[in-house]
């Protein structure tokens, strides 16, 4: 066998390997297809009756909540990140030190820990709770984490704007602040729209952690809604429905990112 392979030309040898890979893959697929109980799969993961019962609440409550939590987390996180990025680039050492400490701390912690600190640590320690229930507590918790990540993105964007832009603005008599907000940041944001959109996708998925804060029927987001539905129906179909809805939210965004990156690569 070995001798026969060795006598082949390199191109023929590649061809033999390719064909054997296809054959192997086909065998695996056939084994899975024949050994799987498709009726069971269909009944437990793609059960139309169970799925039908989830509507319309899975959209009007759960998906809407997921979108709402994401939006608020993103907006709060972005404002926080902008402040952190500017502190990180400040000429004042205490500001820089604070920003670096903050960023390293919250990038190093699980988001779940931060959520627990906000949702339960604060009330235990001070007998005081953030307003807004799940929306308020969860969004602030996620924003604290997202702010750390986005701060580094914004900083990179600011540093990617050529130094000559700042010099031109300053030579026209613009102050440091005016230069930052009218010349540097508009150009920086154009550069960082793709990574910021990625951060938004991550936030959509991270709102599934909000279950830890407890929930009422009105505050359930997609994952919690699906999980409770699964428990009451003893069926996994709700997870499938939730997964599809997550993809409907995230896939358009990731496609958008890819398009933005391509057009950015081409230049304006």
């Amino acid at each position: 066998m070995r001798q026969r392979l060795a006598s082949l030309t390199p191109r023929q040898r590649t061809r033999v390997y390719q064909v054997s890979m296809y054959v192997l893959a086909a065998i695996v697929v056939l084994v899975v297809v024949f050994l799987t109980d498709w009726e069971k799969v269909q009944k437990n993961f793609f059960n139309v009756d169970v799925a039908r019962d989830m509507f319309p609440e899975v959209i009007t409550t759960a998906a809407v909540n997921t979108a709402l939590y994401t939006a608020l987390s993103f907006v709060l996180g972005f404002i926080l990140a902008l402040a952190l990025a500017l502190m990180r680039l400040s000429s004042l050492r205490p500001f820089r030190a604070f920003a670096i400490g903050y960023i390293e701390l919250f990038r190093g912690l699980p988001a779940l820990i931060t959520l627990l600190f906000v949702g339960f640590g604060l009330p235990i320690a001070f007998g005081w709770r953030l307003p807004g229930g799940t929306l308020g507590n969860g969004s602030v918790g996620l924003a604290i984490v997202a702010g750390a990540y986005m701060a580094e993105t914004i900083r990179a964007g600011i540093e990617a704007v050529p130094k000559g832009q700042v010099e031109a603005a300053r030579s026209l008599g613009m102050s440091r602040t005016r230069t930052m907000f009218t010349i540097v940041l508009p150009q920086a944001f154009r550069i960082i729209i793709p990574p910021l959109t990625n951060e938004l996708v991550l936030l959509i998925k991270d709102t599934s952690l909000f279950f830890i804060l407890g929930s009422t029927p009105q505050t359930k987001e997609l994952t919690k809604f699906a999980r409770d539905f699964m428990s009451s129906t003893r069926n996994a179909t709700p997870l499938t429905v939730a997964a599809i809805l997550y993809l409907l939210l995230t896939l358009p965004l990731t496609f958008l990112v890819r398009r933005l990156e391509r057009s950015a690569a081409k230049g304006r």
């Binding site: 000559g164 832009q165 010099e167 031109a168 613009m174 010349i183």
Partner: peptide, 18 residues
């Protein structure tokens, strides 16, 4: 900043705001 408003500057790399 005030002094700079009285002094126009032109750069090698133009540095227009894109």
């Amino acid at each position: 900043d005030k002094v700079r408003t009285r002094i126009g500057m032109v750069f090698q790399q133009f540095n227009l705001f894109p």
